[in-house]
Simulated assay, not measured.
Amino acid sequence: MGRDVVVLPTLPEPKGVLAKALRGLTKKPGDVATLPARTHMVMEHRVAVSRLAAYCAETGFALRDEMPATWLHVLTFPLQTEAMAADDFPFPLAGLVHVTNDMTLHRPLRVDEVLRVSVRAGNLQPHAKGATFDMVGEVHVGDELVWHGTSVYLAGGARVAGDAPPPVRLAAPSVAPSQEWRLPGDLGRRYASVSGDHNPIHLNALTARLFGFPRPIIHGMWTHARAVAALGGELPDAYRVRVQFAKPILLPAKVGYGVVREDGQWRFAVVNREGKPHLVGELSVARRGEP
Rank of each mutant, 00 (worst) to 15 (best):
M84R: 01
N123R: 14
F133E: 07
E44S: 08
R110P: 06
N101V: 13
P68N: 09
H45T: 07
P68K: 02
A62W: 06
G60E: 11
H106E: 13
L96M: 08
A48H: 08
G122P: 06
H106M: 14
Q125V: 04
L93H: 05
P78S: 00
L63C: 11
A54V: 00
H127G: 03
M43I: 05
L75P: 09
D112Q: 02
P92K: 01
F133T: 09
C56M: 03
L72K: 00
A128D: 04
H106D: 07
D112A: 02
D88Y: 11
M84I: 05
M43W: 07
T81P: 03
D88E: 13
A128K: 15
E113P: 13
A62F: 12
P108I: 01
T59N: 03
E58R: 02
E44H: 14
S118E: 15
Q125Y: 07
F91Q: 03
E66R: 15
T76F: 07
L109S: 01
N123V: 02
L63M: 15
S118M: 04
E44G: 09
V136S: 11
L115H: 07
A53L: 05
T132F: 02
R116G: 08
N101A: 11
R64N: 15
L124Y: 11
F77I: 06
V119Q: 03
A53Y: 10
D102V: 12
N123W: 10
D134C: 01
T76D: 10
A62Y: 09
H45V: 10
C56Y: 04
V49P: 12
G122T: 03
D88M: 10
A121C: 12
V117Y: 00
A128E: 13
A94D: 05
A69P: 09
R116L: 01
Q125T: 06
E113R: 00
V99A: 06
G130W: 14
L63N: 09
S118W: 04
V74Q: 05
M84T: 10
P108C: 03
G60N: 05
V97I: 15
R51M: 10
R51F: 08
N101I: 07
R46M: 14
R64D: 15
R107C: 02
T104R: 05
A128C: 01
A62E: 15
A57D: 06
P68E: 14
L124H: 10
